[in-house]
């Protein structure tokens, strides 16, 4: 790994200011970034550690009943603290990687990274979450629908920090992950959420353009909330799915259906 200077701000303001330096990058839990830096696929002169900023850690409830998770909150904390308030999200967080990864990795890092196989992007998109981005010009609110712009691409601007993610709590929800056992990431996973005004279905691990909403399933499930409603649907186009040695496009397209139906059955 190339050497760099590490700065450790205590407040969000200081972190935003530090990220204004030329060639500076945020460091969340480092569970994606450090391996990438070791492989020399990422580097910067200055890394800004977010782990010392207490104001972006923890879980609370806002006036609209949304669960607000600080961007620096670890997966382990979400698994523990949302177990009653939002079990589907807690179970998603509690199955990311392994216990040691969950003690360092953060929701802000996962969402900012937008790995096409990551878990949180499906949870945020499926829950219709709002992402709070803190930058030099203040705070921006970005709907999940406008945030995830394709593989490793988001609506975040240079130097912006995910300070909080706000989750409306659905009537019923579930995350079903078909695990790729070597990486422990999903091969394909589905997050389904039933709200009073309709159903949302977010799929990760499948599409070569990253997390997406499977709108056909959303329509079918809004009309008939049952695993059978999914079984009758045509799977997404295999040509648009990721194809690699772990599973080709047709296999992944099939898994999209299977995991969605399982999620509905278990919700």
């Amino acid at each position: 790994m190339y050497d760099f200077e590490l700065v450790k701000p205590k407040t969000l303001r200081e972190a935003v200011a530090a990220l204004q330096a030329e060639d500076a990058q945020a460091l969340g839990g480092g569970q994606t970034l450090l391996p990438t830096m070791k492989a020399r696929l990422a580097m910067a002169e200055q890394f800004v550690a977010l782990s010392g900023i207490d104001e972006i850690k923890g879980v609370c409830l806002d006036d609209d009943g949304r669960i607000c998770i600080g961007g620096g909150t670890t997966h382990a904390t979400v698994a523990r603290e949302c177990a009653e308030s939002y079990p589907a999200l807690a179970s998603l967080a509690g199955r990311i990687g392994d216990p040691a990864v969950r003690n360092r990795g953060t929701i802000g890092g996962s969402i900012a990274n937008n790995d096409p196989s990551a878990c949180y992007p499906a949870g945020a998109l499926g829950s219709n979450a709002t992402i709070m981005a803190e930058g030099p010009n203040g705070t921006r609110e970005i709907a999940a629908d406008d945030f995830f712009l394709g593989m490793f691409t988001t609506a975040l601007e240079e130097g912006e920090i995910v300070s909080e993610v706000k989750f409306p709590v659905p009537e019923r929800a579930r995350y079903e992950k078909f695990i790729q056992p070597a990486s422990r990431f999903p091969l394909v996973a589905a997050f389904v959420a039933k709200f009073s005004d309709g159903v949302r279905v977010a799929i990760t691990g499948a599409s070569s353009s990253g997390v997406f909403r499977w709108t056909e399933a959303e329509e079918a499930l809004s009309a008939d909330w049952s695993p059978d409603a999914v079984k009758g649907l045509t799977a997404p186009d295999a040509g648009e799915m990721i194809s690699d040695l772990h599973g080709d496009g047709a296999y992944r397209a099939h898994l999209v259906k299977v995991m969605t139906a399982r999620a509905v059955a278990a919700a």
Binding site: L6, K8, L27, G30, Q31, L34, P35, A49, S51, G52, A76, P99, A100, V101, N103, R104
Partner: peptide, 13 residues
Amino acid sequence: GDPVKACSVLAQE
């Protein structure tokens, strides 16, 4: 008190 991978965290942090 919590398990972490020592190869994936910086000493200065």
